[in-house]
């Protein structure tokens, strides 16, 4: 009788495990379906650059997106140094991959939400993305965080918060973290005035930079001219 009880416990336990294991392909397909609702958008946003060697004002920018992978951030006024990896805020770069291996890697809390961790490995050597980790909210089918390693521009960690446009899979706030190279010009080229502060702030070695994009409004599926991305 006791033996039968333990067998039942084992069977139930293994059955529960089978149910709890997320199929990454299914989850990604669900997320992609949601993101595919957006063919294009034009968004008005505020961009804040926080890089040790850059002092920049807040920028008012317009973000243009067109499926599958065109994304452009243009300053409405003024100058800003936009990290090249911000194109990866367009998740279609990852979700649009055709030939890849996806692995479920457990769960993780992002902003209080239990997210499924999906690791994605493109199998095509020509892809710029070499590896991606998505933290997916399985209930809302939204990506809350992604870590994307690229061949050309290093690794980017992107955190997304959603609000009014969550049903379209479009975030209200995006925080991009990336590696920066040391900025150092040859001595004597700029003949700096020594006001005593440069020695304190001098960056040494690679640093982490951050760019925060706060979206105000989106205009979705109204068409965006190709010329904007040139």
């Amino acid at each position: 009788m006791l033996r039968l009880f333990w067998i039942c416990v084992l069977l139930l336990g293994s059955g529960w495990k089978v149910n709890a294991a997320i199929d990454p392909a299914t989850l990604l397909a669900g997320v992609k379906k949601k993101y595919d609702l957006v063919r294009d958008y034009t968004a008005s946003a505020q961009l804040k650059t926080n890089v040790l060697f850059i002092k920049a004002p807040l920028s008012q920018v317009t973000v243009y997106y067109k499926r599958p992978d065109q994304l452009k951030i243009k300053n409405q006024k003024g100058i800003s140094f936009v990290p090249k990896g911000t194109v990866n805020i367009n998740l279609n770069n990852v979700l649009g991959l055709r030939n890849f291996e996806a692995i479920a890697a457990g769960t993780y809390q992002v902003d209080g939400v239990t997210c499924e961790i999906i690791k994605i490995f493109p199998l095509n050597d020509e892809e710029d993305i070499t590896r991606a980790t998505l933290y997916v909210d399985p209930t809302r089918l939204l990506v809350l965080k992604s870590i994307i390693s690229t061949r050309e521009s290093g690794t980017y960690q992107i955190a997304m918060q959603y609000g009014a446009y969550a049903s379209w899979g479009l975030p209200d706030r995006v925080l991009v973290e990336f590696n920066t190279r040391e900025f150092k010009l040859p001595k004597g080229t700029t003949l700096d005035y020594d006001n005593g502060s440069s020695k304190v702030d001098a960056p040494k070695g690679p640093q982490k930079g951050k760019v925060e994009i706060l979206y105000r409004t989106y205009t979705i599926n109204q068409g965006v001219a190709d010329a904007i991305f040139r």
Partner: peptide, 8 residues
Amino acid sequence: FRETDLHI
């Protein structure tokens, strides 16, 4: 542009 940083 300065030797170790840039200001906008």
